[in-house]
């Protein structure tokens, strides 16, 4: 990594995780949730998104470039640590390890997911209810997506906790503990939204 920029890179990494990546995740899962109201509602939502002006620019600026930076710098951070939960089995140390593990799982999941949906669209396929229903006709994909969604939402929720510390918002132990509880609630609620939306595609 470039000399003298580690403070800025770490701050940018932390910021991008929430704005825009975290917000995009919430938006994406809520949009998927429309599938629980039927194929028609989901296809309508997809159509609405596809009609956003300059969609490709929006996608690159708010999704692809931030995720690419977050992923590359995240891998650098993840492989720098010397994990020691064996000797130091504290809750936060486990979260530290899991943040890095889920980061890598999430990256694999996202690469596959983008290949299967967005790149197929670029190659001429149409993204709609049937495409997802087709993907979920395979039980292996249901397992893969379940792990992927849980891992992504965990990484987001625990990353939210870290964000609050990295930016000096939760400073003392009490506020950090409350933030742990709140981000756990975020994890449960958002995981439910994600998995419930997925189940709507399983016919």
């Amino acid at each position: 990594m470039a000399k003298g920029h580690s403070f800025l890179s770490h701050k940018l990494h932390s910021l991008l995780g929430l704005f825009p990546i975290g917000l995009f995740l919430l938006f994406h899962l809520t949009a998927n949730y429309q599938a629980t109201r039927g194929a028609e509602a989901f296809n309508q939502t997809v159509g609405l998104i596809e009609n956003v002006p300059l969609l490709l620019v929006v996608e690159f600026v708010f999704i692809y470039i931030p995720i690419l930076f977050h992923a590359v710098y995240g891998l650098y951070i993840a492989f720098q640590a010397k994990h020691n939960v064996g000797n130091f089995g504290y809750f936060r140390n486990h979260m530290f390890l899991w943040q890095r593990v889920t980061g890598i799982i999430t990256l694999i999941f996202i690469v596959w997911h983008v290949w299967e949906t967005r790149i197929q669209k670029a190659l001429g396929a149409s993204v709609d209810f049937d495409m997802m229903a087709n993907i979920f006709s395979s039980p292996a994909m249901i397992v893969f997506y379940t792990i992927g969604i849980i891992s992504t939402v965990f990484h987001f929720s625990n990353g939210l906790w870290s964000f609050l510390v990295h930016w000096g918002i939760t400073v003392g132990p009490r506020s950090q503990r409350v933030a742990t509880y709140l981000t756990m609630v975020v994890f449960v609620v958002v995981t439910f939204i994600g998995l419930r939306a997925m189940s709507a595609f399983i016919l």
Binding site: H5, F7, S9, K11, R92, N93
Partner: peptide
């Protein structure tokens, strides 16, 4: 603290405060 190897490198494992 804002240089390389400074505060940015903290990963919040919080082992330090326990140890």
């Amino acid at each position: 603290l804002m240089g390389d190897g400074g505060i940015g490198d903290c990963g919040n494992s919080q082992n330090c405060v326990q140890a």
